[in-house]
């Protein structure tokens, strides 16, 4: 009991540290760039981090269980073009087309995720390799489905969804936040969630205690895929196109958000609250540097420095915690 409560304290301290870093960044940009703290800009930042936040929420499941998913950007493109095809089918009512499109995207995402999880855990292949393969399959599939063309002309009601706001907050961001909350409940309050942490910490111990990790691993990767399917829908509604080459490199941004958020790349340690903070840090940084007029090249360098800094700080904190 006492060890678990000290672990909770440590976790809260870690998240507080990341939160402080975000706060410092916000204070800095608010002082350095006059337009930063306007209502419009805050709303912009929320829109801009939404896709990465959804992908990173899903990615947190894969990383917590001790894996990684390099295929999310490519699978997102496959989800989008399949949904795009369904959305633009002739002779369908708008609500039916939208329902089919959303269902198609989620099904493709979950299917690819389940395949990633099953192949890597059934044959004991590192998910790094399996998802690298899936990256190529999904990207090739997306190109095949579209013959490399951009799909457009979605129903108006679908496109309107992408820019809708509630009390000045983008609806898409609210959805991402609700999903993150649900994910947090699953990870912290369910057997499935606790099993993910247990497997990420010590898969062998889980096996020896008589549990079979296979199903949990497949499910964790399926959740990652589900979030990819949701991100694809958000992308399409916001930009009103589906393009087979979209999402290149998105996996790296999602991984960066998870890692900056304090989740350990070796699994078993971290939280979705951290992921939210990590995604916010990346978004605020990109936004603030542009508002300050910092050049593209410097902006890229600064982003890289922040990622390394976050990981260094995390290992420093871990060492402190061990005493």
């Amino acid at each position: 009991m006492s060890s678990s409560s000290s672990a909770t304290v440590r976790r809260i301290l870690r998240e507080a540290g990341i939160g402080l870093a975000l706060l410092a960044m916000i204070v800095f940009f608010a002082a350095a760039a006059p337009d930063f703290s306007t209502h419009e800009n805050i709303s912009n930042i929320l829109t801009q981090i939404t896709i990465n936040l959804i992908l990173a929420t899903g990615m947190t499941f894969a990383i917590l269980i001790g894996g990684i998913d390099l295929s999310v950007g490519a699978v997102m493109a496959l989800c989008a073009v399949v949904a795009g095809r369904l959305l633009t089918l002739d002779g369908m009512s708008e609500p039916l087309a939208v329902a089919l499109g959303v269902a198609g995207s989620l099904a493709v995402g979950m299917g690819c995720g389940a395949a990633n999880g099953w192949i890597s855990s059934f044959w004991g292949i590192p998910s790094f390799i399996v998802t690298l393969g899936m990256l190529n399959i999904a990207r090739g599939g997306a190109l095949q489905v579209t013959n490399a063309r951009t799909i457009y002309d979605f129903p108006d009601s679908f496109n309107a969804f992408g820019t809708a706001t509630v009390l000045g907050v983008p609806v898409m961001f609210v959805i991402a936040l609700v999903l993150l909350g649900l994910g947090w409940l699953v990870l912290t309050r369910t057997v499935f969630g606790r099993m993910i942490y247990a497997i990420g910490n010590n898969e062998e111990a889980v096996r020896l205690s008589g549990h079979r990790p296979l199903l949990t691993k497949v499910l964790a990767f399926t959740v990652t895929g589900l979030f990819v399917g949701i991100a694809a829908i958000v992308y399409m509604a916001r930009l009103t196109i589906a393009n087979p080459i979209l999402g290149v490199g998105f996996e790296l941004n999602a991984i960066a958000a998870v890692i900056i958020g304090g989740t350990s790349l070796s699994g078993g340690r971290g939280s979705l609250i951290g992921t939210l903070l990590g995604a916010a840090i990346i978004g605020v940084l990109a936004n603030g540097l542009i508002l300050m007029g910092v050049s593209d090249f410097i902006r890229q360098i600064v982003t890289g420095v922040v990622i390394i800094l976050a990981v260094v700080l995390d290992s420093y904190r871990a060492r402190l915690a061990r005493g």
């Binding site: 760039a33 337009d35 930063f36 306007t38 419009e40 800009n41 912009n44 829109t47 801009q48 896709i51 992308y235 916001r238 930009l239 196109i241 393009n243 979209l246 999402g247 290149v248 990109a286 936004n287 542009i290 508002l291 007029g293």
Partner: peptide, 16 residues
Amino acid sequence: WETEEANTVFSNMLTA
């Protein structure tokens, strides 16, 4: 050359 990145970068330019 990217749609989503252009969307983000331009929103930020417009704020500035």
